[in-house]
Amino acid sequence: MTSYADTAAPAPPAVTGTTRQSAPSPVDGSDAPAREALLQVEDLEISFEQYDRGLRRRTVTAVRGMSLAVHPGEVVAMVGASGAGKSLLGHAVLGMLPPNARESGRVLWRGTPVGPAARRRLAGTGTALLPQSLTHLDPTATVGAQLRRAARLAGADRRTARVRAAAALREQGLAEDVLRRHPHELSGGMGRRVLTAIALMGDPALVVADEPTPGLAPASVAAVLDRLAGIARAGSGVLLITHELDAALEVADRVVVVREGRTVETTDAGAFTGDGLRLAHPYSRALWRALPGNDFEVTAC
């Protein structure tokens, strides 16, 4: 498990970076230029306007102040209980919030503030969603058709889309005859590879993996996490959204702990060790101690 601080070495180039950069950066003076973050979220707040019975308007605030940063080549895990607003942040990053959502705070893409419309335009090529459940595949279209459409959306013309679809499958270790299959003819593992192939079609700089591991067998979890680490090794940033801390710690460089719509702590993954005394916030410590390997201890906090 490796980690680097925000002031670590400059981003590894996108293509050549085949091994995880593990050389710890010398913590020298502040004169070293900070590596530019791919994505920076500052004090994001998301609320929804709802209509109660009749015309009474009601505002529900789901995200109350979240901040995080993802750099090229690193896996940042956002960990928190269900309903903490993790997935909403993921959707906000992709510009996919429903129309009745209001947001405040700042989202920066490579240092430039981007509004929801600009984020929407980034989706597919700059940022990508990497889901894991097979319901994310269109049940009526063949794998090939969906891959080709993804390639077209990423800017390929009709002929290159065909070539890129086949190449993307090969890259995920799938045979070409999978192109002709429908999603219901795929096994879970194959389906997840197809989803990965589609998500990576636009060569995104940032991949948002939303709850990739729940309900999977340990071997499948390892495969999924391995793939995420591979994406980071190839130079993209990965934002891993999960409520499973132990799985997240397998691959994450940094961990953002969220609770009830707020980030309570951002820390190196290495801080989750021993009694968790290196963790600053009691909630992070409670999460860590509640893991099976750490006595299942549940403390009220």
Binding site: A123, G124, A128, P131, L137, A150, G202
Partner: peptide, 8 residues
């Protein structure tokens, strides 16, 4: 949702 995330 996935298609929208691909820019559809």
């Amino acid at each position: 949702a996935f298609a929208r995330a691909q820019g559809e």
